[in-house]
Design a protein around this nucleic acid. Structure first.
Lengths: 170, 170
DNA sequence: GAACACATGTAACCTGTTACATGATTTG
DNA sequence: CAAATCATGTAACAGGTTACATGTGTTC
């Protein structure tokens, strides 16, 4: 149940509304853990029900600003230190590779060429993000940059692999 | 709906029972697309219902051997060539990185050290798999090796990144 | 005052996980 | 004959996606 912890994590930085959190997901967490609007609002209601967060303020247009409670912070720390990260990663990009044999060599190379482009776009998108964000000294900035570096390295690795793979197809 | 296509892909190589497919998932597709026994049997029944596969033979112990139909092969090719791979990858490993700021520097480095070990184990597991499989000339072997190379490079990349990241924490 | 951004909530559906339930054949 | 392996099926639940539904405040 990582969505729950993603929300607690974002709220550990500062209070925010469901709408704020939706925007934060789109900009910062999108590559690690995408979430939809409907999911976020539903989960916030549940989290408030169990006391891990509470409604700290209400604003115009029905805005509810949620804040992390002590219990919520404890739960976040527990998740980070006591539970093993091991969720199976699913990649339909990689899955397709196994079955490229049902296509012609040309089509298979075409798929890998697409992956090269995809990786380039991913890389460049992250570079643009890096430039557009004003990185201050809060911990989300520090660790956000580390996560971004992961994305850059990942896309570079995938590009090189896809180039190598295209060369393997005779 | 990638599970459906994973099954079609495996059956494109040769007919197989649900049990066979379960084993194939465990050995070859596990890193790209894990699937449970219950999921596989349910999906096979659905696929047979829509005519993408059929029961080609029945064996002892209620064994049903499924084979890909022409329609199934067409659907597999369609998936590979006409649909964009873009499923959001979720990584709770990366998600946690964003929130390491709520821990002490020591705890955060501890997490990254775990990731180094995890990556090493992943790398070594794939090396062992590479040695244990007898790679013949069928297309699953050719593309299976390419997918395996991806896993090796991925784990190497992640290890190097985690080492770099641990050094970033002051 | 029209368009856009802010703001929330819910219902239906699909996918995936865990657990239960059962039985047949082979191997030591 | 006991244990391991082969073999299938289903039910309950959790998590995620898409679509619908509604309304307020700001900006041009």
């Amino acid at each position: 149940m990582s969505l729950r912890h993603a929300l607690l994590g974002l709220l550990s930085e500062r209070p925010a509304s469901g709408y704020d959190l939706l925007k934060l997901f789109e900009t910062s967490l999108a590559t690690a853990w995408p979430a939809t609007q409907s999911q976020i609002y539903t989960e916030l209601t549940k989290l408030a029900g169990t006391g891990l967060i509470n409604v700290a303020a209400e604003g115009p247009r029905g805005r509810k600003e949620y804040a992390l409670t002590d219990e919520g912070l404890a739960e976040l720390r527990h998740w980070l230190t006591e539970t093993k990260p091991q969720r199976n990663t699913r990649s339909d990009i990689l899955l397709r590779v196994f079955f490229l044999g049902v296509l012609t060599a040309e089509q298979a190379r075409g798929y890998l060429t697409e992956l090269i482009e995809l990786s380039d776009q991913g890389y460049q998108g992250l570079r643009r993000l890096e430039e557009s964000v004003d990185w201050d000294d809060d911990s989300l900035s520090v660790y956000g940059r580390i996560a971004l570096e992961y994305g850059l390295r990942f896309n570079a690795m995938r590009r090189e692999w896809a180039e190598w793979a295209a060369g393997q197809i005779t």
